[in-house]
Amino acid sequence: MAGTRSPSPRSLSDGSFRPVMVGGCVAAFVMVLSPLVAIVWISFFENKIISFPPTGYTLDWYRAAAAMPQFRDGFVTSLKLGVVATLVSLIAGVPAALVLARGRFPGREAIQSLLLAPLIVPGIVAGAALYMFLIEVELASGVQVAMTFWGLALAHSLIALPWTVRLVTASLVGLDPQLKEAALTMGARPLTAFRLVTWPLIRPGVVAGALFAFIASFVDLEKSLFLVGPGVTTLPIVIVNYLEWSIDPTIAAVATVQIAVISAGLVLTDRYFKLARAF
């Protein structure tokens, strides 16, 4: 290559761009995925004391975990809380999303920030505040709320709400209002128009919102921490409490069950609603 006008000759580092970028990418995925891979793997180890390489593989730890009442109860409580929180967040969140998607009106930004705030205020701060608040309510009314299922349900509904608001609004914003108007001019009654035109279009957003809401509630740790009590403890808190005492394949089996539930839910959601759009 002669050309006096050609740019500066190829320096050694030019070829390093792709390898460095891909290397960074691989390192990032190793960081993110290795704890999950490790815990799933160990849940099948035969020996109770973790040793490498394992002497063999077994499913015994799943049986052992299922036999332990605290895990069973935690799982059931988390499931029930997730369902209640999802329902509440849909009842409260879908109408709110319909209003927010109308576009600009005075106070819209403020209302939107307020509804998304539970996502932004740190869990530990919000949890502590809610705990103190519920105790004050209890003192004033004489009804126990903190450390009951319904106290937790309130906290979890708040965790779930921003997700339904956000995803349903996102699915509505792209919606062409003329579709609905076209249906109205063609003689559809408004409720019929909603059922036949608006609903099918926002359904992916609602389904995704519900699934995200459920997952966010199911995995929550910080907010629930203050509000759990005897008899009402969520699975993540049972896991954390157990981990403070011992690390063994039983807890790995429990964690693997949670990983499986959440992954299945997310892969399912992705078919309705591209997950990347939720962020």
């Binding site: 290795s34 704890p35 999950l36 891979v37 490790a38 815990i39 199911f218 995995v219 929550d220 740790l221 910080e222 699975l235 993540p236 808190i237 896991i239 954390v240 981990l243 690390i247 807890i251 790995a252 964690a255 949670q258 990983i259 959440i262």
Partner: peptide, 8 residues
């Protein structure tokens, strides 16, 4: 969720 990843 943080619990599972911490466990990992």
């Amino acid at each position: 969720g943080n619990a599972v990843r911490a466990a990992g």
